[in-house]
Amino acid sequence: MHIQEELSQRHVLSLTVSNEAGILARIAGLFTARGYNIDSLTVADITDDHAISRITIVTSGPPKVIDQIIAQLDRLVPVHKVTDLTDAGPFVERELALVKVAGTGEDRIEALRLADVFRAKVVDTTIESFIFELTGTTEKVDNFVALMRQIGLVEVGRTGVVGLMRGKEAV
């Protein structure tokens, strides 16, 4: 007997939650307890009085599982609203990466040239290294990191995705 898995789709979920102790553990724990995936998760408070946080979760699963994830999140007491950005219409998603690259000579010049193509900024430099700051979709960051790996990638830090609906309305 073998374990079988279903095909899954990537979804970006945007949650507003009460900013209280344990909320992140509650949400992360729900995902592990019910066997859902987290590709990335970001959280920060978004109101003047620090009462509300926005959590953006990139997850993947078959449509039925995504629907369950939303319903399960929505019934947590401190969760105000869950929006599936992927389903709700056009939206913007971005993540920020810091990418450290080391090398000399032609590699160093090539790294700068590629950074220019990707509109990455140099935020630190030594004679033998750069740190680039890059903002973009997950795919763009993946591509940049893949190129830098061929040149002399040292390490990467990524924020994970934040997203908002396009247009003038709030979700």
Partner: peptide, 14 residues
């Protein structure tokens, strides 16, 4: 206690 009961209660508080 709140950690242990977080996922076996409807809600919990410290």
């Amino acid at each position: 206690t709140v950690g242990i009961t977080r996922h076996c209660s409807k809600h919990n508080y410290l």
